[in-house]
Design a binder for these strands. Structure first.
Length: 357
DNA sequence: AAATCGGGGCA
DNA sequence: TGCCCAGATTT
C-alpha cells in the first residue's frame, strides 16, 4: 500500500511536468481574491462554462474591495445564467466580510478562509494551497474519481464514511511542501486523463498500479448511492403590462431561483390550458376584475434542473388600467436589462415571441 | 444523513 | 435520458 502511494504521487507529478498542457486563466494565480473567485464560480460547474464569467467578474471587480462595494443587483446580473445562485449571494457576503473584518486583505489561514460564507472543505483547501501553499489536500469530483479508481475503493463517495475515508487518503498522499502544484496536478489529471467517461487508460502513466484498470472496474468507480427524484412543475407566467411597464417580483421563497426576478407566476399541478387558467381562481385572486386583453400566448418551454423539470408557458396580457398585485411591482420594461432572470425566462425573452429585443 | 440548489455538455 | 461538473448549505 505504501509503495502504491509513493508510486501514485511520483507518477502524478511526473505527468504534470511532462504531459500536462491544461491552461486556464487562474492557473498559477497567487492572488487569493482571484483564486477564490474562480473556485466559487467553478463549484459544480465545468471550466469551459465558468471561464467567461470569471473574466467578466475580474474585469468588473479587480479587487475584493471592488466586489464588496458593488451593487447587489448588478452582481446578480453578472452571475445570471450560471446557476446555483446562492453562490452569488454568499460570495458577496464573503467579500463584504473580508472588507470589514480584514480590511480588504484576504485572510491567510485555513480556518479563517473556511469560515467565510460559501467556502466549504474543498474551496478552503484550494485557496489555502494555491494562494498560500498550505498543506491541505483538495477533494473534489476529480479527486474522488482518481483515488477511487487507482486504489480500487468502492466506498460510496456521497456517504459520510466515504468522504472521511477519501479525505484522509488524499491528505496522506499530499506532499506537504508542494501542496499547490500537487493539488492542481491531481485535478488536471482527473479532468484530462482519468475522465468520468472514456478515460485515457491506454496512455495513462498510472496504469501499471491502477486497481480499477486491472480489475475492469473503471466504469464502476467511483460509487454513488443516492439517486435523485425529479419532480415536474408547471409555471404559467402572466406577463401583465400596462403601457411601458410590466409586473415583476424578486423570488424570495424557499425555492429555486432565489433573488432572481420573474413575471406574475401561477404554478399549476399539471399543464394548464391558457383559457382555463385565466378564468381560474388563482388568476382572479391576483388580478380581480381588472379588464385586460390577451396579446400573446407562447409555446411551452422546458428546462431541466437537477431535481426538477420546469415546464413554462408565457401569456402576455395588457391591462386597461394599473392594479395592485400583492408582491409584484409595476416596473418599466426598459429597466429589465439591469435585473437577473432565470434562464428559462431569458430564453423566452430572447425568442421571437418575446417581449423585448 | 438526506435533500436542495442551475445550467450545460456528452454518450 | 442519465451522469457529471474545481460543492455548500439547510433540514
Amino acid at each position: 500500500m505504501r509503495a502504491a502511494r509513493l508510486f501514485f504521487t511520483e507518477k502524478l507529478l511526473d505527468w504534470n511536468l511532462e504531459m500536462n498542457n491544461r491552461s486556464m486563466p487562474w492557473k498559477g494565480e497567487k492572488d487569493p481574491y482571484r483564486i477564490w473567485l474562480s473556485e466559487i464560480i467553478l463549484q459544480q460547474t465545468r471550466v469551459e462554462q465558468g471561464w467567461p464569467y470569471y473574466e467578466r467578474f475580474i474585469a468588473n471587480y479587480p479587487t475584493v474591495s471592488d466586489l464588496a462595494a458593488a451593487n447587489e443587483e448588478e452582481v446578480f446580473r453578472l452571475w445570471q445564467g450560471l446557476g446555483y445562485y446562492a453562490r452569488c449571494k454568499n460570495m458577496l457576503a464573503a467579500a463584504r466580510e473580508i472588507q470589514q473584518t480584514y480590511h480588504g486583505q484576504f485572510p491567510n489561514t485555513h480556518d479563517q478562509i473556511k469560515a467565510l460564507k460559501g467556502i466549504g472543505p474543498y474551496t478552503a483547501a484550494a485557496i489555502a494551497s494555491f494562494a498560500f501553499n498550505l498543506p491541505h489536500a483538495v477533494l473534489d469530483g476529480n479527486v474522488f474519481r482518481v483515488l477511487s479508481r487507482f486504489f480500487g475503493i468502492d466506498t460510496p463517495i456521497d456517504s459520510t464514511a466515504g468522504k472521511k475515508e477519501f479525505a484522509e487518503l488524499a491528505q496522506e498522499l499530499l506532499p506537504k511542501d508542494n501542496a499547490a502544484t500537487y493539488n492542481q496536478a491531481l485535478m488536471d489529471f482527473g479532468a484530462v486523463v482519468c475522465k468520468p467517461q472514456r478515460p485515457e487508460c491506454s496512455s495513462c502513466p498510472l496504469q501499471k498500479k491502477c486497481v480499477a484498470y486491472h480489475q475492469q472496474l473503471i466504469s464502476l468507480l467511483p460509487v454513488k448511492t443516492k439517486k435523485l427524484q425529479i419532480k415536474k412543475r408547471y409555471f404559467n407566467y402572466i406577463i401583465a403590462s400596462w403601457k411601458d411597464k410590466v409586473y415583476i417580483r424578486k423570488r424570495t421563497a424557499d425555492d429555486i431561483w432565489q433573488n432572481l426576478h420573474e413575471f406574475v407566476l401561477i404554478e399549476s399541478k399539471e399543464a394548464a390550458d391558457s383559457t382555463q387558467l385565466l378564468s381560474g381562481t388563482d388568476f382572479k385572486e391576483l388580478f380581480g376584475t381588472t379588464v385586460y386583453e390577451i396579446t400573446r400566448i407562447s409555446k411551452q418551454f422546458k428546462q431541466q434542473l437537477t431535481h426538477q423539470t420546469i415546464h413554462s408557458q408565457f401569456i402576455n396580457i395588457e391591462l386597461a388600467q394599473p392594479t395592485d398585485i400583492p408582491g409584484y411591482q409595476l416596473t418599466p420594461t426598459d429597466t429589465l436589462d439591469n435585473l437577473a432572470f432565470p434562464k428559462t425566462i431569458t430564453t423566452f425573452l430572447q425568442s421571437k415571441t418575446g417581449l423585448l429585443l
